[in-house]
């Protein structure tokens, strides 16, 4: 397990280095003057000179790469051109809000998805199973921002049950929770579909496996067989898909946060793109990529712990 963990973490770090090199290339190799692009339409000669010095653009290429990596490794993602604050501070201010939104979306989706998946297994082959199948695929197919717009129209504008915009009043937990309902619904819907399909497929596969038959032959109660032996294996693909889907949740969050004017990584980066606030865009991309790699690697390690067969993939 230790060998596998080291290899997996090393691979994640290597990918991060490649991604950083790619981003370095995007900033420095694109046609035109990187300082002007970074500063956007607000570039003044003084600001440009300062940024050229700060970015090390007057140094040799190896020095620039070293400077870029050293800064990123120490958490220096640059300075927000508009607010003049460190980009990392700006990101860390809104990141917990997006994290909370993603976690709440995933939580209700996992509960409902596992429930629907189990129902489909219980009624497998029946009309209900087929109906749940079509429903799951439909949930996956509908874009989250359209669900966001429709739910905003119905529950906030027409019925007036829930707030239309914002993240609730600070300090008021009730108002913050109410502001979370519609955005987390919009993000979670497609995940209900994914998880229901996956749980159904893996449960059906596991229930026919040899170790389940053996467990039954030993006379273990059905609850123990299902919860201790079947679910343990059936849940593995679900963990994998949730981890891989961290990126998909982020994508949905970008759109959904914009629809509900909710502070978070989505509104931060879309605002930055509109203003061509280059350091914030690049800093956010780098931060979120590192976060995504962390989640995927952690999930891989967890899966390897739950299902030892996975470790053989890297070992081989």
């Amino acid at each position: 397990m230790l060998g596998y963990s080291i290899k997996r973490v090393a691979l994640a770090l290597l990918i991060l280095v490649v991604v950083m090199l790619g981003m370095f290339a995007m900033v420095y190799v694109i046609p035109g003057d990187p300082a002007s692009i970074a500063l956007g339409p607000r570039a003044t000669p003084e600001l440009k000179a300062l940024l050229i010095q700060r970015m090390g653009l007057d140094q040799s290429l190896p020095n620039q790469i070293w400077h870029f990596f050293r800064a990123a490794a120490t958490g220096d993602l640059g300075i927000d051109v508009w607010s003049k604050r460190p980009v990392l501070d700006v990101i860390l201010e809104v990141f917990p809000k997006t994290l909370l939104l993603g976690a709440v979306s995933l939580c209700w989706a996992v509960v409902l998805g596992i429930g629907l998946g189990c129902l489909a297994v219980i009624w497998r082959g029946t009309f209900i199973d087929r109906l749940l199948g079509v429903l799951s695929v439909s949930m996956i197919a509908v874009p989250s921002f359209v669900i966001a717009l429709y739910s905003l129209l119905i529950f906030a504008v027409w019925l007036g049950w829930l707030p239309a915009i914002g993240a609730g009043q600070s300090g008021d937990w009730g108002s913050q929770a109410r502001a979370l309902i519609l955005p987390s619904f919009a993000i979670g819907v497609s995940w209900v579909g994914y998880i229901a399909r996956l749980v159904r497929a893996s449960m059906l596969e596991v229930m026919g496996a040899n170790h389940i038959r053996t467990a039954r032959a030993f006379g273990l109660p059905e609850t123990v067989v299902v919860l201790k032996y079947a679910l343990r294996i059936a849940i593995v693909p679900t963990i994998a898909i949730i981890a891989i889907g961290a990126g998909s949740i982020l994508s949905s969050a970008v759109f959904v946060e914009t629809v509900f004017s909710r502070p978070g990584i989505g509104t931060l980066i879309t605002g930055a793109v509109e203003k061509r606030n280059y350091p914030v865009v690049m800093g956010t991309v780098l931060f979120m990529t590192a976060f995504y790699l962390f989640v995927v690697t952690a999930a891989d390690l967890l899966i390897a712990r739950l299902d030892p067969r996975v470790r053989d993939v890297l070992r081989g």
Binding site: I15, G247, V254, V273, Y278, V281, T284, V285, T289
Partner: peptide, 13 residues
């Protein structure tokens, strides 16, 4: 490993 939307926004910038 790049979250799709983040990468897309970076390229658009």
């Amino acid at each position: 490993s790049l979250p799709m939307i983040m990468f897309a926004l970076a390229v658009i910038t």
